[in-house]
Design a protein around this nucleic acid. Structure first.
Length: 490
RNA sequence: CGGGGUGUGGCGCAGUCCGGUUAGCGCACCUGCUUUGGGAGCAGGGGGUCGGGAGUUCGAAUCUCUUCACCCCGACCA
C-alpha cells in the first residue's frame, strides 16, 4: 500500500491531522479556527450523542434549549466566571448591515445594540437567569436540565476537534435543595462520563478533582476524567462542576423549604464536547488510519464483493444481502459496498483508513466454498469463515474488538503510569516518554505553577480514591498527604 | 500581539535567486480498451486572471512597492 500519511513516531500531531482529513471526519473552514464536521465525523458525534443522551435521561435529566446570545451584563454577575471567560468572548454589537459605497456590505453604525450580546462560551448565566423564574419551592427541585448546543471560545491556536473556536457539546445544569444533593449529582455525572468513556469509547479514564489552578471559573470544585493519549499526553475528556451557591447568589435564585425557610439553591454543571472525537482518534488509531470502537462506529461492518463479471456480482450480491439482513437483525450497522467505480483493493484501503471495525470480502472462491473472508481492523487479522452462521461470529467479533481496544488502551496506560519520589526522576519521565506521573505535592498553587513553568507538566487531577500514603512534596519537600497525577496535557 | 513561513488547475508541489517561446509535474477528474482476492495498466483528453492592486520593462509567476489571506512557533484554553 502506498503510504501517503504520517506515522505516529514521525510526527504525532501531523499523524493526527492526517487522520482527521483523510478519514474525512472534518476540515478547516473559511472561518479561522472553525471546522466543518463532515458527514462521517458527524456520524460519530451522533453515535456519542445517542449513547450519552440516553444515559442523561436514565439519570432523570431532560433536554431544553437556551439562547446562543447572552446579554453582556449577565456574564459579569458572577465574578470568577466573568474573569475566566471574558478574554475569549465573541461580542455582537450591531444588528444590521447596509450596502457599502465601495462595494459589498458594511456595518450600519446606526444599528448599534443598546446592550451588547456575547456569544455563549458556556450557558450558566443565561440558564440561571431562567432558573430564577422556575424555582420557588423545594417542590421545584431538583431541576435537572441538559442542553445540546454549540459554544464559542475565541482561542488563539486551534486544532481540529481538540480545540476549535466553535465546538459542539452538551452542558448539564442542575439545581438542588442541599449541598449534599448537588455534590452527589456532580459525582454521579462524572461517573456517567467515565462509564461512557470506558464502555463506549473503550478509553480508560482516571477520575479526580482539579486543583484550584485548573478549576472551572465560578465553580467551587471541578471534577474531571482524564485519558492518556498515545503520545503520552493527557486529555481532559469531561468535566463536572460543583458550583456551590455561586450562581444562585449571583442570580438570586432562592427556594422556600418545607420548614418555611428561604435559601439559595445548590448547583452543578457538566459537559463533554466534540473533543471526545479527538480523544477517540488519539487513543486507538494506528499508522494505517483510524480505529473505531464498534459501539461508536457509524459503519460496523462493510461487505465488499470481489468479482469479474456481472453474473458473479449478482451471485455475490444475493449472499451479501442475506448476510447484511442477518447482521442488521442483530442490531449491527452494515454497508454493502457494491460500487463498480472503485476496485476491491481501493475499498479495503479506504475502509481501513476510516476505521470500520470489520470487513467482509466475498468473492467467487467463497461462493464455491461457502465461505467469506473476515478482517478485523484492530489487529489486522484475516480469517476465512463458513458462510453458515457467520452472522453470529461477526456479532461476537464486534464485542471482542470493543473489549480488545479497551484492554489495549488500559495496558498502554498502565505501562505509562509511574510513581516518582524525587523531582529529578519526575523531570526525567516528563521530558522522556511522558505519561501519567504520580508524585507528592504540597497543595500550593504556586508550587504547581513553578513545576509547570519548568517542565510543562500540570496536575491533571487529585485522585478521589486509590490514594497513596503521605510523603514529601517533590518540589518543596513540604509534607503531602498523598500523591497526585501529573502529565503534560492537551 | 511578538517571531518565522507560504500563497501557482480540485489537492500537493516545481519554476522565482539570475525576467525571455505555448507555465510544468504528481494525484484527482473525463473517454476508450484491458483489468478486479490489498489503493490496476495503457492510450487519449479537459481544466490556470501564477492571492489582489500599483509600478519597472520591449517583455513579469519571476524585480520593486503596497495590500489581503492562510499556516507554523510562543502567551490563553474543553
Amino acid at each position: 500500500m502506498a503510504r501517503d500519511f504520517t506515522t505516529r513516531k514521525d510526527d504525532f500531531p501531523q499523524w493526527y491531522n492526517d487522520i482527521v482529513i483523510k478519514a474525512d471526519l472534518a476540515e478547516n473552514s473559511a472561518v479561522r479556527g472553525c471546522m466543518v464536521i463532515k458527514p462521517y465525523g458527524y456520524a460519530i458525534w451522533e453515535k456519542m450523542q445517542g449513547a450519552l443522551d440516553k444515559m442523561f435521561k436514565d439519570t432523570g435529566h431532560q433536554n431544553a434549549y437556551f439562547p446562543l446570545l447572552i446579554p453582556k451584563s449577565f456574564l459579569s454577575k458572577e465574578a470568577d466566571h466573568v474573569e475566566g471567560f471574558a478574554k475569549e468572548c465573541a461580542v455582537v454589537t450591531h444588528y444590521r448591515l447596509k450596502s457599502d459605497p465601495k462595494g459589498g456590505v458594511m456595518v450600519d453604525e446606526t444599528a448599534k445594540l443598546e446592550e451588547e450580546l456575547i456569544i455563549r462560551p458556556t450557558s450558566e448565566t443565561i440558564i440561571w437567569n431562567s432558573y430564577k423564574k422556575w424555582i420557588n419551592s423545594y417542590r421545584d427541585l431538583p431541576l435537572l436540565i441538559n442542553q445540546w448546543a454549540n459554544v464559542v471560545r475565541w482561542e488563539m491556536r486551534t486544532r481540529l476537534f481538540l480545540r476549535t473556536t466553535e465546538f459542539l457539546w452538551q452542558e448539564g445544569h442542575t439545581a438542588h435543595a442541599t449541598r449534599e444533593e448537588a455534590e452527589e449529582e456532580t459525582e454521579r455525572m462524572l461517573s456517567v462520563y467515565a462509564d461512557f468513556a470506558e464502555n463506549f469509547m473503550a478509553v480508560p479514564v482516571l477520575k479526580g478533582i482539579k486543583t484550584a489552578n485548573e478549576r472551572f471559573a465560578g465553580a467551587e470544585e471541578t471534577y474531571c476524567i482524564e485519558a492518556l493519549m498515545q503520545d503520552g499526553k493527557s486529555l481532559q475528556a469531561g468535566t463536572s462542576h460543583f458550583l456551590g451557591q455561586n450562581f444562585a447568589k449571583a442570580f438570586d435564585v432562592k427556594f422556600t423549604d418545607k420548614d418555611g425557610s428561604l435559601s439559595h439553591v445548590w448547583a452543578t454543571s457538566w459537559g463533554v464536547s466534540t473533543r471526545l472525537i479527538g480523544a477517540l482518534i488519539m487513543a486507538h488509531s494506528d499508522d494505517d488510519g483510524l480505529v473505531l470502537p464498534p459501539k461508536l462506529a457509524p459503519i460496523q461492518v462493510v461487505i465488499i464483493p470481489i468479482y469479474k463479471s456481472d453474473e458473479e456480482l449478482d451471485a455475490i450480491t444475493i449472499e451479501a444481502e442475506k448476510l447484511k439482513k442477518d447482521l442488521e437483525d442483530r442490531g449491527v450497522s452494515v454497508k454493502y459496498d457494491n460500487r463498480d467505480t472503485q476496485k476491491p483493493g481501493w475499498k479495503f484501503a479506504e475502509y481501513e483508513f476510516k476505521g470500520v471495525p470489520v470487513r467482509v470480502a466475498i468473492g467467487p472462491r467463497d461462493l464455491e466454498n461457502g465461505t467469506v473472508e473476515i478482517a478485523r481492523r484492530d489487529t489486522k487479522e484475516k480469517s476465512t469463515q463458513q458462510m453458515e452462521g457467520v452472522g453470529a461470529v461477526i456479532a461476537n467479533l464486534l464485542d471482542e474488538i470493543q473489549k480488545n481496544l479497551y484492554d489495549r488502551a488500559l495496558k498502554f496506560r498502565d505501562d505509562n503510569t509511574v510513581e516518582v519520589d524525587t523531582y529529578d526522576e519526575f523531570k526525567e519521565v516528563i521530558s522522556g516518554k511522558g505519561g501519567f506521573v504520580l508524585a507528592h505535592w504540597d497543595g500550593e498553587a504556586e508550587t504547581e505553577l513553578k513545576i509547570k513553568t519548568e517542565t510543562k507538566a500540570t496536575i491533571r487531577l487529585i485522585p478521589m480514591t486509590d490514594r497513596s500514603g503521605p510523603g514529601k512534596c517533590i518540589y518543596t519537600g513540604n509534607p503531602s498527604e498523598f500523591k497526585v497525577v501529573f502529565a503534560k496535557s492537551y
